[in-house]
Design a protein around this nucleic acid. Sequence first.
DNA 1: ATTCAATTTAATCAAATGTTTAAAACAAAA
DNA 2: TTTTGTTTTAAACATTTGATTAAATTGAAT
Lengths: 204, 204
Amino acid sequence: MAAKAKSKDSTTEERIRVAARKLFTRHGYDAVKTRDIAAESGINLALLNYYFKSKEKLFEKIMQENMKEFMQGISGIVNDEQTNLESKIKRLVEYYLDMLMSNPDMPLFVLSHAKKKGSKLNFRETFAQSHFMKQIQEAVKEGKIAPINPLNLMLNIVGLSIFPFIGRHIFQNEKGITEDAFIALMAERKKMIPGWIDAILRKK
Amino acid sequence: MAAKAKSKDSTTEERIRVAARKLFTRHGYDAVKTRDIAAESGINLALLNYYFKSKEKLFEKIMQENMKEFMQGISGIVNDEQTNLESKIKRLVEYYLDMLMSNPDMPLFVLSHAKKKGSKLNFRETFAQSHFMKQIQEAVKEGKIAPINPLNLMLNIVGLSIFPFIGRHIFQNEKGITEDAFIALMAERKKMIPGWIDAILRKK
DNA sequence: ATTCAATTTAATCAAATGTTTAAAACAAAA
DNA sequence: TTTTGTTTTAAACATTTGATTAAATTGAAT
């Protein structure tokens, strides 16, 4: 029974998928070979084609998963009619910081592959029809916040949240900060970014 | 004479270097094949090895060039003792926006490869000993700006400047904004970012 | 136990890839 | 014109790569 439960938790297909996700997310499509994935998942090379038909098909699957995870929580937040603008901004920042703390390679992967057909990722579209966008426009009209191009606001929220993960290797190395310091820095930013965005919005 | 002048402007080595820079910057190391570079530069495949010894050596050369360009103007700006804090921020933003408008693929390349040995890119180090850093610390001490971790300030300046280029494919596509709109958006940000940073620094 | 389907294995295949080789072509100097 | 050095060319090489194949093994149903 224990053996059966273990088998259920780790099917061959699942092991391949997990290994592929790890490698593709970190290194991208071309740098990762089918033999790398086979080794990482502890399977025979031919099983990759047996279960996923081709390297490319496997990659597309991983790409969809990553894009979905990157976007998944956003819709709920930006379309929630029970929260105000300030709260939405805070939740967006928290969503990204939490997600990326557990998967720091994700944004670089997502942004590197956003141009591929099939990626189906459109920030602008997601925000354009949202309740969040309405709230911004109303606040500008009521003079509660400084006029700002909604796309710029979106870029600022996402950029301030994501950029440190994308760029972490340019300051996290032997001459830079440690892994622990990076984690502390991100925790600090998680708290500070909503305030920074607020300052930008209230700029005179 | 005209033929001689032309030959001087376009040596085989130079043509290979230019083609390689274009392709590597856009697509990265593994996705670009030696035959791609040969085709792009209009040379015989073996010349790549004749002039640069190996694909890897050529890539390292391109990587150094790109890293250098990415960092080159910064030192001058952050160590200039004749300009104040506000002016330095403005010039940093302008430096990046101008550079990246003419080479939008650069940041993704630089950040993707920052972890490779030989990349010799360290933001934190560049800023840590700078006059800019001193100015920040003094301004905080004098209560002129809100206390802020200098690394966070640096990340905010660079992130707000660079992120739209890194992320442009997630909002610049058939369902998103046009190339012209992107250029206009960047021109707008070039003007707005210094003010946003200022608002962040003066946040109460 | 037998049969059939599903999964796994190891070898093979065809094409791609970075590199090397040797000869041809070119350029410069004597 | 000849010699020497440099550059270019096309073919070949050795290895890598994604994919296929056929047989063996395993698992499920009868």
